[in-house]
Amino acid sequence: MQELTTTRHNPFIDPFTSVWGWEIPVYLFLGGLVAGLMIITGYFILKGKHKNPDSIVHYVPFLSIIFLTIGMFTLFLDLNHKLFVWRLYTTFQITSPMSWGSWILLLVYPALIANILIDPPQILINTFNVVSKWSRVINSKESFMNNIGFLNIIFGILLGVYTGVLLSTMGARPLWNSSVLWLLFLVSGLSTAAAFGHMVAKDVDEREFLAKSDNIFLISEFVVIILMLVGLMSSSQAHIQSAQLLLGGPFTAPFWVFVVGMGIIVPLFIQLLAVNHKIKHTPVAPLLVITGGLVLRFVIVYAGQFSHYINAHFQ
């Protein structure tokens, strides 16, 4: 028997690390969702779907920028030294994913705005005079449109990857320290985005396409999850113990019930039936996928902080 005692009692550090609360998982979820939406709308633009007035390309970018702003706001809420937030933009720290992220966000906004300008909502046209002018410029050339689609895909990928890299570079947290976490968050972002599109799509073909894509993303996500667990379980003691948090440990139930079961398997089953026209498309499956994506971020952020190199958590 080993007895381990510490006299340290720092808030949010002891007895186990919990420095990040709900704000970070919500931000990571919204970031992933927006990344997925950017990739999908970018792809649709390249495919010329914007010519179809019912396409999600016409209204999803505006929703994306709202989601991203909410995400940025929750990120801001998490900061403890808020008055100094401008310090992010007086430097670029090449080794810091968070620094990369803050600059990527600066690139994501113009790309999203450009995307919105393809078909700006009436409220923007009424509020800002320049909006319709710029919208006309953008719509005047097909090459502009292609560039916008291309940029949205690129920045969407960067954004989605960054949300995972942010955590996976933290060697101190074995659960996060997996080389496929970026892929998991990217695929999960794509699956929630496809689910969201599936839910809000007006065009029947688009809806069918998004549902089919979502099924592919969900299967990929499941595969990545398994790969991540296999990777962790075949690594060092600390990594094995971190994986065990999801395999019998305290985070097992939320992970397997809400993320894998309700978030992947069940909606995949429903959507497979839907795309094969056995049942009608309903918002049930997309909502399950979106909830699963959110819970995934919570589980990973909380369990990751809990995971540790010291093999016993202090009482």
């Binding site: 808030p11 420095v19 990040w20 808020k82 100094f84 310090r87 992010l88 540790h308």
Partner: peptide, 21 residues
Amino acid sequence: HNMCIGCKACLAACPYDARFI
């Protein structure tokens, strides 16, 4: 202190949990 935004990344990154806010 005057450059820190309180993002807590360093707290999470430290395997010794040596930092606090």
